[in-house]
């Protein structure tokens, strides 16, 4: 991988919620994302994915630890509103478009007070063109399909040419096809614009369409690896599953059983299993 500068970095990030029984949503999360990367943060629900994204997106301040975006420590920034408007683009699980505004007006929202009117128009056109909705510019969200709404949301997130784009379960409320299309759109944005994108999801298929997968468990990053061939990813997935674990645990026994087999068909299956077990380890 070519040498690229770090654009997002968290160090020992801790976030504690609640006045009563406290909840440690993040418990010393360390991660870094390079400029132009498309990465996924995965993890079971309640693992702190959204909290991590909110910290990076300057929606909330951490309890302790540091978040550095574009070389700036977020805790030293006083005007988080302006920071969000200029440096961060958000895509939510539900499109969260303003229902009374048209597609193009929704795209314009973040540019209010940041970009001059004439430029706003021009940029909105460009962005809607990028997401392939130029002919739907005057439609209200209720007149668009779920996938189209999410595309508008992507265009809106890009409105102020942010440094990073954060997508929280962007495919969560879409069907498989529309979900894949959104991920393809994010890939395209990443490829053509060099946009740094962090996607939070619990969907492996979605994760595999990115370049690197960070796994979050109980508020810490427990795994961080680049996305490899589908076969390798399948094996990884299997290895992390209960079935894979139990297979690995009984590896010796299985190998012995397979090796002793006399049936040709079984031997062929045995060869395959052997390969799998090697791959798993």
């Amino acid at each position: 991988m070519e040498e690229r500068s770090v654009i997002v970095e968290t160090r020992d990030l801790v976030k504690v919620y609640g006045d009563g029984p406290e909840v440690r949503a993040l418990d010393g999360a360390n991660m870094s994302v390079h400029r132009g990367e498309l990465v996924t943060v995965m993890g079971p629900s309640g693992s702190g994915k959204s909290t991590l994204l909110n910290m990076i997106g300057a929606l909330d301040r951490s309890t302790s630890g540091r978040v550095v975006v574009k070389g700036e420590d977020l805790s030293s920034i006083r005007d988080l509103d302006a920071f969000r408007a200029q440096e961060v683009g958000f895509v939510f699980q539900l499109h969260n478009l303003i229902p009374t505004l048209t597609a193009s007006e929704n795209v314009e929202i973040p540019m209010h007070g940041q970009v001059k009117q004439r430029q706003r128009r021009k940029r909105t056109q460009e962005l809607l063109d990028l997401v392939g909705l130029i002919d739907r510019a005057g439609h209200l969200p209720s007149q668009l399909s779920g996938g189209e709404r999410q595309r508008v949301a992507v265009a809106r997130a890009l409105a102020n040419q942010p440094a990073i784009l954060l997508a929280d379960e962007p495919t969560g409320s879409l069907d498989t096809t529309a979900g894949r299309e959104i991920m393809e759109l994010l890939q395209k944005v990443n490829r053509e614009r060099g946009m740094t994108i962090i996607v939070v999801t619990h969907d492996r298929k979605v994760a595999r369409m990115t370049q690197r997968i960070l796994t979050l468990e109980d508020g810490r990053i427990v795994d961080d690896h680049p996305v490899q061939t589908p076969l390798v990813e399948d094996l990884r997935e299997l290895a992390r599953s209960q079935l894979g674990q139990s297979l690995l645990d009984r590896r010796g026994k299985i190998l012995k059983e397979v090796g002793l087999g006399s049936d040709a068909g079984l031997t062929e299956q045995g060869e395959y299993l052997r390969g799998l077990l090697v791959g798993l380890t």
Binding site: L59, R84, A85, F92, N96, I98, H112
Partner: peptide, 16 residues
């Protein structure tokens, strides 16, 4: 409420 949350997340200030 949620729409207002979106606007705030997109960088709208309280005053706006």
């Amino acid at each position: 409420t949620r729409e207002i949350g979106v606007l705030r997340a997109l960088g709208w200030r309280r005053s706006k």
